[in-house]
Simulated scan of single mutants.
Amino acid sequence: MNEVETKDVGTTDLSAYMMKVIEELRRDRKPPAVHIYACTLRSFIRFSCSGEEECSMPMQEVFTPGRLKEYEQWMLLRKLTQNTISTYMRTLRAVYNRWMPPGTAEHNPRLFDDVYTGVVSQTKRALTARQMEQLLEADLSGLSPQQQAVLAYFLLMFLLRGMPFIDLAHLRKRDMQDGRITYSRHKTDKPITVRIPREALVLIAKYADRHSASPYLFPILDARIRDSWQSYRNYQDALRHFNRKLGQVMSRLLPGVRVSSYTARHTWATLAFHSGQPVGIISQALGHSSLRVTETYLKPFGNELVDKANRQLIASVRKCKWKNETEYRAGL
Protein backbone atom coordinates (compact mmCIF):
# COMPACT_ATOMS: atom_id res chain seq x y z
CA MET A 1 0.00 0.00 0.00
CA ASN A 2 1.51 3.36 -0.96
CA GLU A 3 1.93 6.40 1.23
CA VAL A 4 -1.07 8.29 -0.14
CA GLU A 5 -3.43 5.37 0.45
CA THR A 6 -2.09 4.93 4.01
CA LYS A 7 -2.67 8.59 4.71
CA ASP A 8 -6.25 8.52 3.37
CA VAL A 9 -7.46 5.50 5.32
CA GLY A 10 -9.28 6.59 8.46
CA THR A 11 -8.51 10.28 8.05
CA THR A 12 -10.27 11.38 4.87
CA ASP A 13 -13.57 13.16 5.47
CA LEU A 14 -16.43 12.09 3.18
CA SER A 15 -17.59 15.63 2.51
CA ALA A 16 -14.14 16.90 1.51
CA TYR A 17 -13.48 13.80 -0.59
CA MET A 18 -16.79 13.99 -2.47
CA MET A 19 -16.38 17.71 -3.09
CA LYS A 20 -13.08 16.96 -4.84
CA VAL A 21 -14.82 14.34 -6.97
CA ILE A 22 -17.62 16.79 -7.78
CA GLU A 23 -15.09 19.40 -8.88
CA GLU A 24 -13.43 16.85 -11.17
CA LEU A 25 -16.82 16.01 -12.69
CA ARG A 26 -17.47 19.70 -13.24
CA ARG A 27 -14.16 20.07 -15.06
CA ASP A 28 -15.01 17.02 -17.16
CA ARG A 29 -18.35 18.64 -18.05
CA LYS A 30 -20.56 15.92 -16.59
CA PRO A 31 -23.48 17.89 -15.10
CA PRO A 32 -25.80 14.89 -14.52
CA ALA A 33 -23.10 13.16 -12.46
CA VAL A 34 -22.40 16.40 -10.56
CA HIS A 35 -26.10 16.61 -9.71
CA ILE A 36 -26.28 13.02 -8.43
CA TYR A 37 -23.10 13.26 -6.36
CA ALA A 38 -24.19 16.58 -4.84
CA CYS A 39 -27.65 15.21 -3.95
CA THR A 40 -26.09 12.10 -2.39
CA LEU A 41 -23.70 14.18 -0.30
CA ARG A 42 -26.48 16.53 0.91
CA SER A 43 -28.61 13.53 1.86
CA PHE A 44 -25.82 11.83 3.80
CA ILE A 45 -24.96 15.09 5.60
CA ARG A 46 -28.59 15.43 6.73
CA PHE A 47 -28.46 11.85 7.99
CA SER A 48 -25.07 12.01 9.64
CA CYS A 49 -25.09 15.54 11.04
CA SER A 50 -28.58 15.48 12.61
CA GLY A 51 -29.72 18.77 11.13
CA GLU A 52 -26.40 20.60 11.40
CA GLU A 53 -24.90 22.04 8.23
CA GLU A 54 -21.68 20.09 8.64
CA CYS A 55 -19.94 17.61 10.90
CA SER A 56 -17.03 15.20 10.86
CA MET A 57 -17.63 12.16 8.62
CA PRO A 58 -14.43 10.04 8.53
CA MET A 59 -14.72 7.68 5.59
CA GLN A 60 -13.51 4.70 7.60
CA GLU A 61 -16.55 5.21 9.85
CA VAL A 62 -18.93 5.90 6.97
CA PHE A 63 -18.02 2.82 4.98
CA THR A 64 -19.04 0.09 7.38
CA PRO A 65 -21.96 -2.33 6.89
CA GLY A 66 -23.66 -1.04 10.04
CA ARG A 67 -23.43 2.64 9.13
CA LEU A 68 -24.66 2.08 5.59
CA LYS A 69 -27.60 0.05 6.94
CA GLU A 70 -28.47 2.88 9.33
CA TYR A 71 -28.45 5.30 6.40
CA GLU A 72 -30.74 3.02 4.39
CA GLN A 73 -33.19 2.78 7.33
CA TRP A 74 -33.09 6.56 7.73
CA MET A 75 -34.07 7.00 4.07
CA LEU A 76 -36.85 4.41 4.36
CA LEU A 77 -38.32 6.26 7.35
CA ARG A 78 -38.44 9.39 5.19
CA LYS A 79 -40.31 7.43 2.51
CA LEU A 80 -37.72 7.86 -0.22
CA THR A 81 -38.37 5.62 -3.21
CA GLN A 82 -36.38 2.43 -3.70
CA ASN A 83 -34.79 3.86 -6.82
CA THR A 84 -33.69 7.02 -4.98
CA ILE A 85 -32.20 4.92 -2.18
CA SER A 86 -30.43 2.76 -4.75
CA THR A 87 -29.06 5.83 -6.57
CA TYR A 88 -27.55 7.23 -3.36
CA MET A 89 -26.13 3.85 -2.34
CA ARG A 90 -24.62 3.20 -5.76
CA THR A 91 -23.06 6.67 -5.69
CA LEU A 92 -21.52 5.95 -2.28
CA ARG A 93 -20.29 2.62 -3.64
CA ALA A 94 -18.58 4.45 -6.51
CA VAL A 95 -16.96 6.80 -4.00
CA TYR A 96 -15.83 3.86 -1.88
CA ASN A 97 -14.35 2.05 -4.89
CA ARG A 98 -12.53 5.21 -5.87
CA TRP A 99 -11.17 5.70 -2.35
CA MET A 100 -10.47 2.02 -1.72
CA PRO A 101 -9.98 0.46 -5.18
CA PRO A 102 -11.07 -3.16 -5.72
CA GLY A 103 -8.12 -5.48 -5.41
CA THR A 104 -6.42 -3.60 -2.60
CA ALA A 105 -6.01 -5.38 0.73
CA GLU A 106 -8.44 -3.08 2.57
CA HIS A 107 -11.23 -3.25 -0.03
CA ASN A 108 -14.40 -5.03 1.11
CA PRO A 109 -16.22 -6.38 -1.98
CA ARG A 110 -19.30 -7.28 0.11
CA LEU A 111 -19.63 -3.94 1.89
CA PHE A 112 -22.87 -3.02 0.11
CA ASP A 113 -24.42 -6.50 0.10
CA ASP A 114 -26.91 -5.69 2.86
CA VAL A 115 -28.28 -2.46 1.39
CA TYR A 116 -30.43 -1.93 -1.69
CA THR A 117 -28.54 -1.12 -4.90
CA GLY A 118 -30.94 -2.56 -7.47
CA VAL A 119 -33.42 -0.84 -9.76
CA VAL A 120 -37.19 -1.13 -9.41
CA SER A 121 -38.81 -1.35 -12.82
CA GLN A 122 -41.35 1.46 -13.06
CA THR A 123 -44.71 0.85 -14.71
CA LYS A 124 -44.48 2.87 -17.91
CA ARG A 125 -47.60 4.37 -19.39
CA ALA A 126 -48.29 4.27 -23.10
CA LEU A 127 -51.15 5.79 -25.04
CA THR A 128 -53.33 3.70 -27.31
CA ALA A 129 -53.40 4.14 -31.07
CA ARG A 130 -56.83 5.75 -30.73
CA GLN A 131 -55.55 8.25 -28.17
CA MET A 132 -52.61 9.19 -30.39
CA GLU A 133 -55.03 9.68 -33.26
CA GLN A 134 -57.08 12.02 -31.05
CA LEU A 135 -53.99 14.09 -30.31
CA LEU A 136 -52.90 14.23 -33.94
CA GLU A 137 -56.35 15.46 -34.98
CA ALA A 138 -57.08 17.62 -31.92
CA ASP A 139 -58.74 21.03 -32.15
CA LEU A 140 -56.10 23.40 -30.78
CA SER A 141 -58.29 26.50 -30.61
CA GLY A 142 -58.79 26.10 -26.85
CA LEU A 143 -55.05 25.89 -26.13
CA SER A 144 -52.66 28.75 -25.49
CA PRO A 145 -49.72 29.21 -27.89
CA GLN A 146 -47.38 27.67 -25.28
CA GLN A 147 -49.65 24.67 -24.86
CA GLN A 148 -49.91 24.22 -28.61
CA ALA A 149 -46.12 24.19 -28.89
CA VAL A 150 -45.83 21.63 -26.09
CA LEU A 151 -48.35 19.35 -27.80
CA ALA A 152 -46.41 19.76 -31.06
CA TYR A 153 -43.18 18.69 -29.34
CA PHE A 154 -44.93 15.66 -27.84
CA LEU A 155 -46.28 14.63 -31.26
CA LEU A 156 -42.89 15.18 -32.86
CA MET A 157 -41.21 12.88 -30.33
CA PHE A 158 -43.71 10.19 -31.33
CA LEU A 159 -43.51 10.83 -35.08
CA LEU A 160 -39.71 10.86 -35.04
CA ARG A 161 -39.52 7.26 -33.85
CA GLY A 162 -39.87 7.84 -30.13
CA MET A 163 -37.21 10.54 -29.88
CA PRO A 164 -36.39 11.40 -26.23
CA PHE A 165 -37.14 14.95 -25.08
CA ILE A 166 -33.46 15.64 -24.37
CA ASP A 167 -32.58 14.83 -27.98
CA LEU A 168 -35.46 16.89 -29.37
CA ALA A 169 -34.46 19.87 -27.23
CA HIS A 170 -30.83 19.69 -28.41
CA LEU A 171 -31.56 19.25 -32.13
CA ARG A 172 -29.64 21.75 -34.23
CA LYS A 173 -30.86 23.38 -37.39
CA ARG A 174 -27.96 21.80 -39.25
CA ASP A 175 -29.22 18.34 -38.17
CA MET A 176 -32.14 18.67 -40.60
CA GLN A 177 -31.14 18.14 -44.22
CA ASP A 178 -32.73 16.60 -47.32
CA GLY A 179 -35.86 15.47 -45.52
CA ARG A 180 -33.93 13.72 -42.75
CA ILE A 181 -32.79 14.48 -39.23
CA THR A 182 -29.38 13.15 -38.21
CA TYR A 183 -28.25 13.43 -34.60
CA SER A 184 -26.44 11.56 -31.81
CA ARG A 185 -28.36 10.26 -28.81
CA HIS A 186 -27.37 12.03 -25.61
CA LYS A 187 -27.54 8.85 -23.56
CA THR A 188 -25.52 6.50 -25.78
CA ASP A 189 -23.90 8.86 -28.32
CA LYS A 190 -25.26 6.50 -30.97
CA PRO A 191 -25.85 8.21 -34.37
CA ILE A 192 -29.47 8.23 -35.51
CA THR A 193 -30.95 9.17 -38.88
CA VAL A 194 -34.70 9.65 -39.21
CA ARG A 195 -36.65 10.33 -42.38
CA ILE A 196 -39.12 13.08 -41.49
CA PRO A 197 -42.76 12.02 -41.98
CA ARG A 198 -45.01 14.56 -43.67
CA GLU A 199 -47.02 14.97 -40.44
CA ALA A 200 -43.81 16.01 -38.67
CA LEU A 201 -42.77 18.39 -41.46
CA VAL A 202 -45.92 20.43 -40.89
CA LEU A 203 -45.21 20.73 -37.16
CA ILE A 204 -41.53 21.58 -37.69
CA ALA A 205 -42.42 24.31 -40.17
CA LYS A 206 -44.79 25.88 -37.65
CA TYR A 207 -42.85 25.53 -34.40
CA ALA A 208 -39.18 25.77 -35.44
CA ASP A 209 -37.02 28.50 -33.90
CA ARG A 210 -37.15 31.59 -36.14
CA HIS A 211 -34.16 33.35 -34.58
CA SER A 212 -31.16 33.11 -36.90
CA ALA A 213 -28.77 33.51 -33.95
CA SER A 214 -29.97 30.31 -32.31
CA PRO A 215 -28.42 27.04 -33.49
CA TYR A 216 -31.32 25.03 -32.06
CA LEU A 217 -34.12 23.73 -34.27
CA PHE A 218 -36.74 24.47 -31.59
CA PRO A 219 -36.94 27.33 -29.06
CA ILE A 220 -36.68 25.05 -26.03
CA LEU A 221 -33.20 25.86 -24.70
CA ASP A 222 -31.38 29.15 -24.19
CA ALA A 223 -28.73 29.33 -26.91
CA ARG A 224 -26.85 32.11 -25.06
CA ILE A 225 -25.71 29.75 -22.29
CA ARG A 226 -22.20 28.38 -22.73
CA ASP A 227 -21.35 27.00 -19.28
CA SER A 228 -21.96 23.22 -19.13
CA TRP A 229 -23.48 23.30 -15.63
CA GLN A 230 -25.79 26.18 -16.51
CA SER A 231 -26.75 24.35 -19.71
CA TYR A 232 -27.70 21.31 -17.66
CA ARG A 233 -29.81 23.46 -15.32
CA ASN A 234 -31.41 25.12 -18.32
CA TYR A 235 -32.38 21.72 -19.72
CA GLN A 236 -33.81 20.56 -16.37
CA ASP A 237 -35.91 23.74 -16.16
CA ALA A 238 -37.12 23.19 -19.74
CA LEU A 239 -38.06 19.58 -18.93
CA ARG A 240 -40.05 20.60 -15.85
CA HIS A 241 -41.81 23.33 -17.82
CA PHE A 242 -42.62 20.89 -20.62
CA ASN A 243 -44.11 18.27 -18.27
CA ARG A 244 -46.16 20.87 -16.42
CA LYS A 245 -47.62 22.29 -19.64
CA LEU A 246 -48.12 18.80 -21.06
CA GLY A 247 -50.22 17.91 -18.04
CA GLN A 248 -52.40 20.96 -18.71
CA VAL A 249 -52.82 19.96 -22.36
CA MET A 250 -53.77 16.38 -21.55
CA SER A 251 -56.28 17.46 -18.92
CA ARG A 252 -58.18 19.12 -21.77
CA LEU A 253 -57.63 16.64 -24.59
CA LEU A 254 -57.39 13.30 -22.73
CA PRO A 255 -58.95 13.86 -19.29
CA GLY A 256 -57.78 11.39 -16.66
CA VAL A 257 -54.75 10.22 -18.67
CA ARG A 258 -51.37 10.80 -17.02
CA VAL A 259 -48.44 11.46 -19.31
CA SER A 260 -44.88 12.76 -19.18
CA SER A 261 -42.11 13.56 -21.64
CA TYR A 262 -41.29 9.84 -21.71
CA THR A 263 -44.80 8.77 -22.77
CA ALA A 264 -44.30 9.57 -26.46
CA ARG A 265 -41.24 7.32 -26.68
CA HIS A 266 -42.86 4.52 -24.75
CA THR A 267 -46.02 4.79 -26.85
CA TRP A 268 -44.04 4.48 -30.07
CA ALA A 269 -42.24 1.37 -28.79
CA THR A 270 -45.46 -0.20 -27.49
CA LEU A 271 -47.46 0.36 -30.67
CA ALA A 272 -44.55 -0.86 -32.82
CA PHE A 273 -44.27 -4.02 -30.72
CA HIS A 274 -47.98 -4.78 -30.84
CA SER A 275 -48.09 -4.16 -34.59
CA GLY A 276 -45.63 -7.02 -35.00
CA GLN A 277 -42.44 -5.07 -35.75
CA PRO A 278 -39.29 -7.15 -35.11
CA VAL A 279 -37.45 -6.34 -31.90
CA GLY A 280 -34.30 -5.61 -33.93
CA ILE A 281 -36.10 -2.88 -35.89
CA ILE A 282 -37.51 -1.37 -32.69
CA SER A 283 -34.05 -1.44 -31.12
CA GLN A 284 -32.51 0.35 -34.08
CA ALA A 285 -35.29 2.94 -34.14
CA LEU A 286 -34.96 3.72 -30.43
CA GLY A 287 -31.19 3.95 -30.65
CA HIS A 288 -30.60 1.39 -27.90
CA SER A 289 -27.00 0.35 -27.28
CA SER A 290 -27.86 -3.33 -27.77
CA LEU A 291 -30.71 -5.70 -28.60
CA ARG A 292 -30.61 -6.90 -25.00
CA VAL A 293 -31.58 -3.42 -23.78
CA THR A 294 -34.62 -3.45 -26.07
CA GLU A 295 -35.63 -6.95 -24.98
CA THR A 296 -35.54 -5.84 -21.35
CA TYR A 297 -37.46 -2.69 -22.29
CA LEU A 298 -40.20 -4.70 -24.02
CA LYS A 299 -40.25 -7.65 -21.61
CA PRO A 300 -43.48 -6.59 -19.81
CA PHE A 301 -45.40 -6.78 -23.10
CA GLY A 302 -44.42 -10.38 -23.74
CA ASN A 303 -46.91 -11.56 -21.13
CA GLU A 304 -49.63 -9.43 -22.70
CA LEU A 305 -49.15 -11.15 -26.05
CA VAL A 306 -49.07 -14.59 -24.43
CA ASP A 307 -52.29 -13.79 -22.53
CA LYS A 308 -53.89 -12.62 -25.77
CA ALA A 309 -52.85 -15.84 -27.51
CA ASN A 310 -54.28 -17.81 -24.60
CA ARG A 311 -57.62 -16.01 -24.86
CA GLN A 312 -57.73 -16.66 -28.60
CA LEU A 313 -56.96 -20.35 -28.04
CA ILE A 314 -59.70 -20.71 -25.42
CA ALA A 315 -62.13 -18.89 -27.69
CA SER A 316 -61.29 -21.22 -30.59
CA VAL A 317 -61.81 -24.28 -28.37
CA ARG A 318 -65.15 -22.99 -27.13
CA LYS A 319 -66.18 -22.17 -30.68
CA CYS A 320 -65.20 -25.67 -31.80
CA LYS A 321 -67.19 -27.19 -28.93
CA TRP A 322 -70.21 -25.03 -29.79
CA LYS A 323 -69.93 -26.06 -33.45
CA ASN A 324 -69.75 -29.77 -32.59
CA GLU A 325 -72.77 -29.51 -30.29
CA THR A 326 -74.75 -27.69 -32.98
CA GLU A 327 -73.92 -30.34 -35.57
CA TYR A 328 -74.84 -33.11 -33.12
CA ARG A 329 -78.23 -31.57 -32.37
CA ALA A 330 -78.88 -31.01 -36.06
CA GLY A 331 -78.36 -34.73 -36.66
CA LEU A 332 -80.92 -35.78 -34.06
Rank of each mutant, 00 (worst) to 15 (best):
Y328E: 15
L155E: 11
L291P: 00
R258D: 05
R67H: 13
L68G: 01
R265H: 02
R226Q: 14
R258H: 12
A285M: 09
Y216M: 07
S121I: 14
N83V: 07
E295Y: 03
L313F: 13
A272I: 03
P31W: 05
L92R: 05
Y116D: 12
T117E: 06
L156M: 15
E5N: 08
A129C: 03
D8N: 12
Y96C: 07
L201V: 06
R265T: 00
V4N: 12
Y183P: 08
G331Y: 14
C39D: 15
L298M: 04
G142H: 06
G10D: 09
N108D: 14
W322S: 14
R110Y: 13
A315P: 02
N2K: 14
Q177D: 11
Q148A: 06
A149V: 03
R130H: 10
I22C: 04
T128D: 00
L92V: 09
Y116G: 08
A264I: 02
K20R: 12
S50Q: 14
F44V: 10
R252P: 03
P31R: 10
D13N: 07
M89S: 11
F47G: 01
R172D: 04
D28G: 03
A105Q: 14
Y328F: 15
Q60V: 07
T104S: 14
D139Y: 04
A129N: 10
I22A: 05
R210M: 12
S50Y: 14
E70W: 05
G51I: 01
R292K: 14
G179C: 06
L92T: 04
E325Q: 12
L156C: 07
L80Q: 11
P300D: 05
M163E: 02
T270D: 05
V4C: 09
S121V: 11
W268S: 04
H266A: 01
